[in-house]
């Protein structure tokens, strides 16, 4: 079976962890590396979290490389209260036994792309800094990236400002570099990720699977639900980052529009927001399409995919 080569750039993070578990359950994916970036938490913590996830899923064969500690031009702002002190509170996993293969995520990504005979798919579920530096420092490798699946941005609503989503808000210059690179990207922004939630009674099913990965994910859901359901009044626990993985696995779960997306870096109150061309065709508008923007998700289908991914680890010897 020909496998799809993937590089997964992330900052785990509860929803990153769930997204990673979904990706690791794919036998038709060849995950070449997991790279980490300072975002949800410090680079040290998110890297250790990535290693922990690989240990609990039995996939320590995948190299992890830590990358940029913070954004291009400003200090890193962490999302601490949502993800807890460790960046992945809620389930105690021991300190990782495995070590990161490198502290040069950009170098590892470049090496993988250089050596790959076929284009590689990138998944970004964290701040865009690593990938932006990759594209700036190795412009000739853009042609080796088939597409980028992104959790980030939004077209109406924000979480870190009224209109800006955290992953792009945290380093808008980096997001701009990625969006302008000429590489097609699928964008799973807040408008669609807010439709991708699991209710408490739905993710409770994970407890019946009797496998350590499902237990781990259930604990993460329990912790993350506090901020999603109790603090913010969402109908369930949002799983933002998992959308960027689910869309690659089964695009039929989503509806997309082909359109132009760019970053706002100038506005006094809109800096870090995405400008998504939503005006109807026929109106005066910028028609240079650079992105498929997800606008709707089949929530039940998404949930089933997520639960099946966790169940996979019970059938597989970990």
């Amino acid at each position: 079976m020909k496998k799809i080569p993937i590089i997964f750039d992330c900052d785990p993070g509860h929803d990153d962890a769930i997204a990673l578990v979904m990706a690791l359950a794919r036998e038709d994916w060849d995950i070449k590396a997991i790279t980490t970036v300072g975002g949800n938490n410090t680079i040290k913590n998110v890297t250790e979290n990535a290693l922990r996830i690989l240990e609990v899923t039995g996939r320590t064969d995948i190299p992890v490389a830590s990358g940029m500690e913070g954004p291009f031009l400003k200090e890193l702002v962490q999302t601490g209260k949502f993800h807890g002190k460790s960046g992945m509170d809620g389930h105690h996993l021991p300190d990782p036994v495995t070590k990161a293969a490198s502290d040069d995520a950009v170098g590892l990504m470049a090496k993988i792309l250089e050596e790959s005979d076929e284009p590689v798919t990138l998944i970004i579920t964290g701040v865009f800094t690593n990938v932006a530096v990759l594209l700036l420092a190795y412009p000739h490798l853009k042609s080796k990236i088939s597409k980028i699946s992104i959790m980030g941005g939004s077209y109406y609503r924000g979480n870190w400002s009224p209109i800006a989503e955290f992953n792009v808000w945290a380093d808008p210059e980096a997001a701009d570099v990625v969006m302008r690179a000429g590489i097609p990207f699928d964008m799973y922004g807040l408008d669609v990720t807010h439709q991708a939630y699991l209710k408490r009674e739905e993710y409770a099913e994970l407890r019946t699977y009797n496998n350590p990965v499902a237990d781990f994910i259930a604990d993460l859901f329990d912790f993350f639900s506090k901020s999603c359901i109790e603090d913010r009044g969402h109908p369930g626990c949002l799983v933002h980052d998992a959308c960027a993985v689910a869309g690659l696995i089964d695009p039929s779960l989503f509806r997309y529009i082909d359109t132009h997306v760019q970053m706002d870096m100038d506005g006094d109150i809109t800096r870090g927001g995405c400008v998504v061309e939503l005006r109807p065709k026929g109106w005066p508008r910028d028609d240079e399409v650079n992105s498929k923007v997800a606008v709707w998700v089949d929530r039940i289908g998404f949930m089933k995919l997520l639960l099946d991914s966790c169940a996979y680890f019970g059938k597989k010897e970990v």
């Binding site: 700036l136 190795y138 412009p139 000739h140 042609s143 570099v177 302008r180 000429g182 100038d266």
Partner: peptide, 29 residues
Amino acid sequence: ARSPIIPRRGCNGGPGGHSEYYCRPQDGY
């Protein structure tokens, strides 16, 4: 580099930049 880190945008003068690199320069970047 053949283009700036962040090109000027429409609001401040329009884009700059040249062709892309399609292979690594012989003597590196």
